[in-house]
Design a binder for these strands. Structure first.
Lengths: 96, 96
DNA sequence: CATTTAACTTTCCACATCGGAAAGTAATAA
DNA sequence: TTATTACTTTCCGATGTGGAAAGTTAAATG
């Protein structure tokens, strides 16, 4: 029935990250962290999880101190997220 | 942003159970188990989790051997599931 | 070159959850 | 009393969780 729900995306924080990035193109660490309301370490770990799956593109921009990272969904990430949404729609019988 | 995703409902198997019950009114154990493709013990535990949250109504019907249980969403369960779907729609910007 | 600062990242920890196998329980029938 | 059916609970190892604290890294500054 739902072999399609993506376990990389489904957990709440990662779903939120993907949703934010899908709507925003690019976001930086601090904003993501504040939107999710989690600690640095938690966000970092979830971003790594998504990145390891190949779902992120990270652009580093020079800044005061260490460069800042801007996060966005990679092509794969976008595809996976759309597929996940499709699966949610099927499962939940959500109207498209 | 999404204080609304219900942790009782969100995990995949429980989401599937709720979705099935929301569409079917009433289902029995064996069918739920087969639809989810999980073992008896897994289904039993997830049903208990939902029941403990007050999200289920269980109707026992006499049958060969032990009575069979028919599972459905309680009023609370229906409300919670709808709220969860609303939250998903917001998060994912799913069209309603 | 050493130090500071900013921006993460990793480690550590204790705890929650996961799924499946196996064992247990309950209700009825034979 | 035993068998059958329908779950339920226990056991298990594996995985995931979040947050605090410690570590790393890149660039700027003294």
């Amino acid at each position: 029935m739902s072999a399609e729900l993506d376990p990389v995306i489904h957990p709440v924080h990662r779903l939120q990250i993907c949703a934010l990035l899908a709507n925003a193109d690019e976001m930086e660490f601090a904003l993501l962290r504040d939107e999710l309301g989690v600690s640095d370490s938690v966000l970092s770990k979830q971003l790594k999880y998504l990145d390891d799956a190949g779902y992120l593109t990270i652009r580093k921009v020079p800044s005061t101190g260490r460069p800042r990272s801007w996060y966005s969904l990679s092509k794969d990430g976008q595809r996976a997220f759309q597929k996940h949404l499709d699966a949610l729609r099927v499962i939940a019988a959500l109207a498209t």
